[in-house]
Amino acid sequence: MANRSKKVVLSARIDPFLKSGMDALSAFTNQKIVKLLETLIENGLNDRVVKNPFSDSPENKDLPLMRLLKAVWSEDEILYQLRLGVLSRLGVKCTSEDVSVITAEVLDNERFKGECDLFDGVTGLSKEAGSIRFKYMVDIGRVRDEWKSLNTYSMFSRNNRPLAISYDQFLIVVGIQRDYSKVVI
């Protein structure tokens, strides 16, 4: 697994006027454009308020997106994606359809039940924001082993609507799973 604590490359096409504005702001503030972009993105994430999935309290119904993402962040890409998938299930859409499908499969399929709590180490955002109310227990080793197959299954499901087959059926169809006794068709 790659180290996710280092900087990543972001490539985007923007309007020339905005690029000129970034150059002017860079000169005005004596900051590099990269630092300005990081600041603007961080400000945008702080300004965006989402439904707080961890609190039933009317006083704590909203939460800055940045605070939520920091609370569930993990350098482990698979763990982080699953956490985002859980947040989407709780009403905060912050991941792709594919990750939502994968998360649903991992949480609902018996083959992925295990001893790892997806939110272990995320004991709560704070007293004000609330804490995670449910345990999401998975076999994270099996999820890691099957992550590529789960991604392929999600893409297959999306590209072949309205056909609906289970993940276990999919594994048989593509020849990955050969133990047919564990599959209910």
Rank of each mutant, 00 (worst) to 15 (best):
V138N: 02
K182Q: 13
S181H: 07
R89G: 05
S154T: 01
I140D: 00
D168Y: 04
Y180E: 12
K32M: 11
A129Q: 05
S149G: 13
D56H: 06
N160H: 10
S57I: 06
E110G: 14
M66C: 13
L118D: 01
G114Q: 02
V72H: 01
Q177L: 14
F54Y: 01
V143W: 00
L171M: 06
I172M: 08
E110Q: 15
A71P: 03
E38G: 06
V101Q: 04
E146W: 05
D56V: 07
R158K: 09
I165R: 05
I185G: 14
K6V: 08
I176L: 09
L18C: 04
K127H: 14
M137A: 09
F134H: 12
M66R: 15
K135L: 13
M1H: 13
Y136P: 01
G44A: 10
E77T: 11
L68Q: 00
G124H: 09
E146A: 04
F170N: 04
L45W: 03
R83S: 01
L65S: 10
V143C: 02
N160Q: 08
L84K: 03
G44C: 04
L63Q: 00
G141N: 11
I41R: 02
F134I: 10
M66L: 15
S5T: 12
Q81G: 04
Y180N: 12
L125S: 03
A27M: 09
I140E: 00
D62Y: 14
V174D: 07
D76P: 01
L36N: 03
P58L: 08
V9I: 14
L150G: 00
F54S: 00
V174F: 08
L69I: 09
C116I: 14
Q31M: 07
W73G: 02
L82D: 02
K7R: 10
R133M: 09
E110M: 11
F134V: 11
R142E: 00
V49Q: 14
V138S: 03
E128T: 06
L68V: 04
V9F: 08
R4T: 04
S181I: 08
D15C: 12
Q169G: 13
D139M: 04
V72M: 03
L79E: 02
M155Y: 15
D47W: 07
L65P: 08
T39D: 06
L125V: 10
A24W: 07
D62L: 14
E75W: 07
V49N: 11
K148H: 15
S20Q: 14
N30C: 13
S20T: 09
